[in-house]
Structures are given as structure tokens and as C-alpha cells.
Amino acid sequence: MSDHAVSLPAATGAIRLEASGPRGPKPRHVFSRRNIFLYGTLIVVALYYLLPLYVMVVTSLKGMPEIRLGNIFSPPLEITFEPWVKAWSSACTGLNCDGLSRGFWNSVRITIPSVILSIAIASVNGYALANWRFKGADTFFVILIVGAFIPYQVMIYPIVIILREIGLYGSLSGLVIVHSIFGMPILTLLFRNYFSSMPEELFRAARVDGAGFWGIYFRIMLPMSLPIFVVAIILQVTGIWNDFLFGVVYTRPDTYPMTVQLNNIVNSVQGVKEYNVNMAATILTGLVPLVVYFISGKLFVRGIAAGAVKG
């Protein structure tokens, strides 16, 4: 310290530096006002948000007599998994009494091909729009983006007619086509933005190296774009799995996806309202997107950030 004082110019010799006082990192207190405020808010918001989920889980584990007591927040006195089993395998929708399991497998058979098809097409679209500036690319892109803003409801009836004419109405493949088409604008935008954020010189280097349209796509671009594919998969899996409108319009009772079947279970008017079965069925339906989020959360955030910045 004294060395410091000595090295000061003579003109400031009147100023004396204190020997004690703050030094090193500024101390931080765990219970500072800032921390209490920050974490307090976070905890309150999280509780508020989680409360409905808690009620659902608790109710689904109770028997009907216990539910009729009306204490929806109290934990189950006697835990039973009966409602879950019933929801999965024997709840009735209309004439069928085989539970949600049929709807689950329908949803799987709808979701998997739709996700693969829509992402495959959209990623190639985005790649072509970002890297191969073909004539009319901008017009094409604008048309595609406008498509994202047109409400689905407008197109429901025309699509019914189209599907009827090509003989796919009511079949799962018809619904797969519909989902693929409606996923296209937003996914193309996502992929285009991601690919245009990649250094253009990489693309040029690959062209000098002699790779063509597909060569660059499969050997250069694809291996570099895992994050954005994860984002696209999450968006599509949750979007298609949770879809109700298209499912109810374009399928028949034996091909209903899980969401439609859930609605039919919950809204059935005959007999007693089995709240515990309804809760269990709802959680079961929501489980797939939930699992997808938990598995890929980190990649999702990374990909969203990468794809969204540059446009």
C-alpha cells in the first residue's frame, strides 16, 4: 500500500490512501433484500403454476368416495392406482370401452410420420432458401410466411373436400398430410434462419470442393444442425400430439387421436363424473410432450437461441 502512495506524482502528495478498507471481491449476503425479493417471487410464481398439477395428481390417486368429501387440496388418505388403470384400458368413449390405449397408439401412428415428413421437407426448404438463392426465392418465402398467419379454421372445409376427393378422408395418412402441411411455414422459417446464421464461406468452400445440393445438405449442413432439429422435433411432437381440431375433423371414431378420445371420456354425459379417471386420463395424455421436454430441454434452449437471433 505504501508503495502505491510513493509512486503517486508529487502534485497529489496531499492525498493519503487508507491502509484498511474494501479489498478483493465485494461480499454478498444470502439473505440480502435482493435475494429475498428475487427468490420469493420465483417461488410464489412457481407454486401458483404448479398448484393445478398438484390437484390433478392428488385427485387421480383418490377413490370416488374420498373425492366426494370435497377437500381437493388434501393428499389422498388411501392411495389407489385404480383410476389410472381404468383410464388407460377400460374407460368408455361412446360404444368402445377399451380406454385411452387405442387413442395413444393412434396418436403415435399420427405423430411419428408427421414429424419426420414435415421436418424432412422443411429443413430442405430452409436450406434451399438460405443457401441457394434461386430466382423467386423471396416471393416463395413470403408466400410461405403468409401461410403461417392464415387461421386454420378457414382451411378446414376445403381440406375436407380435397381429402375426400383423393380418398384419404378419415384415414390416418390423411391427417399426417394435413399436419405436415400446416407445420411447413413455421418450420421452414426456423430452418432458414438457422442455416443463414451459418458462415456462408463454409457453403462456398463446400462448393469449391465440388459438393452439390444434396452433398452439402447431408455432409456439411446436417451434422452441424442438431440443435435446430431438436427444436423442430419438440415443436412438432408437442404440436401434433396436442392437436385436437384436426384430429376431430379429419378422423373417424376408430382412428381418433388421444386428445379427441380424452375429450370424449371427460365430456361423456352418461353416468357419474369420475373425476379421478378424468384426471388420470388427462395426465396420461400430457405425458408424452412432458417427457420430450425433460429429455431435450437443454438442446431446446440452445437451438431456439441459435435459430431466432438472425433473420
Partner: peptide, 15 residues
């Protein structure tokens, strides 16, 4: 096409 021109190219960002 670039590959048929008998050129090799080095880029600023290495690429």
C-alpha cells in the same frame, strides 16, 4: 461450376 474450374480457394474465416 467452381469444382470444374481448376481452382482452390482459401477463405478469411478458414471455413
Amino acid at each position: 461450376e467452381p469444382k470444374d474450374r481448376g481452382i482452390g480457394m482459401v477463405f478469411q474465416s478458414y471455413a
